[in-house]
């Protein structure tokens, strides 16, 4: 038996909204420690890694580790029915064929229960080595989201350069070229604050289309942490009370 009660159901709605355009069918791994998933997008350019810690749920029970194959598209449809103030219970019997979702209103005035049919999915787990990154950028998630969105109007590729003092977002397209540079600072305003932890300068290119999809997670966390090393996928990390959502994106490399 697996059962998890989440008092703040909105966070689960936001998580699924943040991944549904990247991955459509995924295996959730449930253990006594956590609910987790790792899934690539169809073109194998981006990877989603989600961990929700058991200890952060109001109630959590998992007698036996289990893999739950879920259609994210269909889960998103059901979660649309849950109110923003609702609590959500996730429940599955051992060797389950359905995932039961229960949405309960704040004053217990209304309860919705749905059984989502589970899928048997091939898992394509990637081994991601623990590694030290050359540069780490911590900044406002909404500011990063705005920069990516604005630069998408110029072209499809973002050139990201980080040195010890600043981070530069540069683009070059048919209409011209441009860049936005932000200096490391410890402003009280969360929008302006930028923390750099850089051992070596890095300059890399990434597809803005994917970064814009990742930035849907800015509703989960005020900050985003970008980890970069030359010629390896960048990591965007959004941390929140319940756990963390990380996105990996393969770089574009000059042939």
């Amino acid at each position: 038996m697996f059962e998890a009660l989440l008092g703040n159901g909105l966070i689960l709605k936001k998580i699924i909204e943040s991944i549904k355009e990247l991955v459509t069918e995924v295996n959730f791994e449930v253990t006594s420690e956590a609910i987790s998933l790792q899934a690539m997008d169809a073109s194998h350019v981006a990877l989603v890694v989600l961990v929700l810690r058991a200890s952060e749920f109001e109630e959590y029970r998992c007698d036996r580790p289990q893999t739950l194959g879920v259609s994210i598209t269909n889960l998103a449809k059901l979660l649309k029915i849950a109110g923003n103030d609702d609590s959500i219970i996730l429940r599955a019997e051992d060797e389950a064929h359905v995932l039961t979702l229960v949405f309960t209103g704040k004053n217990n005035e209304k309860m919705c229960e749905f059984n989502l049919n589970l899928l048997t999915l091939d898992s394509e787990h990637l081994g991601i080595p623990e590694q030290e990154y050359s540069a780490e950028v911590t900044m406002s998630s909404s500011e990063f989201s705005r920069i990516c969105r604005e630069l998408t109007q110029v072209t499809d590729t973002l050139n990201l350069s980080v040195d010890k003092e600043s981070v530069k977002f540069a683009v070059s397209g048919d209409i011209g070229t441009g860049s936005i540079t932000m200096k490391a600072n410890n402003s009280d305003k969360s929008e302006e604050k930028l923390i750099l932890n850089v051992s070596d300068t890095v300059s890399m290119a990434f597809a803005l289309r994917y970064l814009n999809l990742f930035n849907k997670a800015s509703s989960l966390s005020d900050e985003v942490v970008l980890s970069l090393s030359p010629e390896v996928p960048v990591v965007l990390k959004f941390a929140f009370d319940l756990g963390e959502l990380k996105y990996f994106l393969a770089p574009k490399i000059a042939e």
Partner: peptide, 14 residues
């Protein structure tokens, strides 16, 4: 123009 890499260029199957 730079080429888009895929994740398997960097990470092996677990």
């Amino acid at each position: 123009k730079p080429a888009q890499m895929v994740l398997e260029n960097f990470f092996g199957k677990a």
